[in-house]
Design a protein around this nucleic acid. Structure first.
Lengths: 158, 158
DNA sequence: AAAATACGTCAGTTATGTTGACTTATTTCG
DNA sequence: CGAAATAAGTCAACATAACTGACGTATTTT
């Protein structure tokens, strides 16, 4: 059996994933910090921006946190006019979530930073690499959740 | 200009990265929880295992956390016999860190879970995909830190 | 002998998550 | 119609893992 057989731990990929994700999430941290926000705010803002009119309970499903945790950061984002709430037209118990203009602009700033990092990386790689990377990240997700994620990211954005 | 030009935010990769990393780190959480440990313990244990005899200050550099934060989890890992400390032979101020047999075994369990997830994903992808993925993750790291990471992951493990 | 270094520790704070219990408004269903 | 279910919010208490700042101790360097 060879030294690097099928059961060898993939320390390289494990560690690269750790460092890459840390720096990837580190970019927005600076801007968030200036507004007194953290990563929790970023996640909420991002998924509201990407899913305008999302219900609170669906946002909880995506983020997999509790109502109370979400409540705290959501309240701050609403108070500081990054997110607004509208009662549902069909079901008025719902408080559908939207980013305000301020929220949308800030969100664009944050995703621009992350996109720049991604584009710089991809630009140094062979053609078609982005598809490979996309496929890898998709397959790293729990099998049960893949279809829901596919639905989420399948949105057109303009 | 096309609808998806060079400046379009890469929402798909941004979100895939988020979900993939969450599930990737979620695997070990179950085992860690049984021992009353968290992800902080995992990171410390992992990097000590991969860098036997590492100095505390070098571990701090890798993890980019404070001495006080490390101190808490390290103390628990030492108290519960997952990590041991030896005074440096040349400089006795140092407390060089090693995993105990117990720590080594537990570490192997954790990286096995993560390796399985990686191998399952890679096995469904074209040949050579792992090199592309490795390259991508490497290029996502801050340029300044890449050489140090390269040194870290370049280790032979058996 | 003094200064620098490696490490540890005490005290207090913050961000983000948790559980459990309860309220209010609204919709659904027998 | 009235009871039950649902969507959302809130209060309180707690856990984890990070942070800052200050200080102590052993050891090495200058």
């Amino acid at each position: 059996m060879s030294k690097k057989d099928i059961n060898s731990p993939r320390f390289d990929l494990i560690e690269l994933f750790f460092f890459a994700y840390r720096d990837f999430t580190g970019d927005p941290d600076v801007l968030l910090d200036e507004l007194g926000f953290g990563r929790a705010h970023h996640r909420v803002l991002h998924f509201v921006h990407r899913n305008p009119g999302i219900r609170v309970s669906d946002l909880l499903d995506i983020l997999k946190i509790t109502k109370q945790s979400l409540g705290r950061v959501l309240k701050q984002l609403v108070d500081e006019d990054f997110i607004c709430q509208e009662p549902g037209a069909l079901d008025r118990r719902q408080r559908l979530l939207y980013t305000t203009e301020k929220g949308t602009k800030f969100c664009a700033q944050l995703s621009k930073l992350q996109t720049q990092r991604i584009n710089k990386a991809i630009s140094l790689m062979p053609d078609g690499s982005d598809d490979i990377v996309r496929q890898f990240l998709y397959l790293m997700i729990d099998e049960n959740d893949r279809s829901e994620v596919a639905r989420l990211i399948g949105k057109e954005t303009d």
